[in-house]
């Protein structure tokens, strides 16, 4: 469930009429400024592994994201695979066994700790938010809460980006990034719609959100109608 802080971050990031393509960059910059860290990277993930860097803050973050993409190893790779945060407070102390190439490069770039947060909605793998820091030690509780609020915001941004057609039009409406409605019924309906329309869970969630937006209804209401089979999606709904 999105916190008030997540909504606030999204409002700040999308404020001032930024172009959709600039949202990820604005998000990582704001995340890097809000937390006591050296850099932030946002990596797109698929079931096969890293699919490319979406955005990175200044400093070593960009190079380290690229490195994980190239090597297929590192905090973000483990994080996406397991769906859990990977929080390494002391990279040197952990030793090179876990990520032989990544650990050495990160230490050489002056990074002492790495925190990778999964951007997932159940079976939908969207990406990973990587936080890099030049001093060792865990993220304080309040910093971790802030980092997780940014992770929720990044999840909403990645979903929002995927709802855009190649022509740059959006199915969800301009300027507001919809926060994910994290109710059980929405996830259950996502599963049903994926079968009805013959699409992935990610596309099914986007279809649900797009139709809710188009008909001016809350997603949870539409989800309820899907579950009670009042509303049905078909395979041609995707076109």
């Amino acid at each position: 469930m999105a916190s008030g802080r997540t909504r606030q971050i999204l409002a700040e990031v999308a404020g001032g009429g930024v172009d959709v393509a600039e949202l990820p960059g604005a998000l990582v910059a704001r995340c890097a400024a809000a937390l006591p860290i050296t850099g932030v990277g946002l990596m797109l993930m698929t079931d096969a592994g890293p699919a490319g860097t979406v955005a990175a803050s200044d400093g070593p973050a960009g190079a380290l994201e690229e490195l994980q993409f190239t090597l297929g190893e590192g905090a973000c790779v483990d994080c996406s695979r397991t769906g859990r945060p990977v929080l390494v407070a002391d990279l040197a102390a952990q030793g090179p066994g876990r990520w032989p190439a990544f650990t050495g490069e990160a230490l050489a770039a002056g990074v002492a700790a790495v925190f990778a947060l999964p951007l997932r909605v159940g079976g939908i793998r969207l990406g990973v938010l990587d936080l890099y820091r030049e001093v060792t030690g865990p993220l304080a509780g309040s910093d971790l809460a802030e980092a997780l609020a940014f992770a929720d915001a990044a999840t909403a941004v990645l979903l929002h980006l995927q709802s855009h057609t190649p022509e740059g039009e959006t199915a969800l409406g301009p300027q507001t990034i919809p926060v994910l409605d994290d109710r059980a019924q929405v996830h259950q309906a996502t599963g049903m719609v994926s079968v009805q329309a013959g699409v992935s869970l990610a596309s099914a969630l986007l279809l649900l959100r797009a139709r809710a937006f188009a008909t001016g209804r809350p997603v949870a209401d539409l989800a309820h109608d899907v579950l009670t089979r009042l509303v049905h999606f078909r395979s041609d709904d995707t076109t």
């Binding site: 397991t82 769906g83 859990r84 945060p85 990977v86 929080l87 407070a89 999964p118 997932r120 909605v121 159940g122 079976g123 939908i124 865990p138 993220l139 509780g141 971790l144 997780l148 994290d182 059980a184 996830h187 259950q188 309906a189 996502t190 599963g191 049903m192 719609v193 994926s194 079968v195 009805q196 869970l201 579950l227």
Partner: peptide, 30 residues
């Protein structure tokens, strides 16, 4: 061992719950 591990566990448990909800929907429809 520390606070961070608790965060990992709770995050993992909540993420797993969402996956199970999606699977219920897929199976119900199929």
């Amino acid at each position: 061992r520390e606070q961070t591990v608790l965060s990992e566990q709770l995050q993992g448990a909540l993420s797993t719950r969402v996956l199970v909800e999606q699977a219920k929907g897929v199976l119900a429809e199929r």
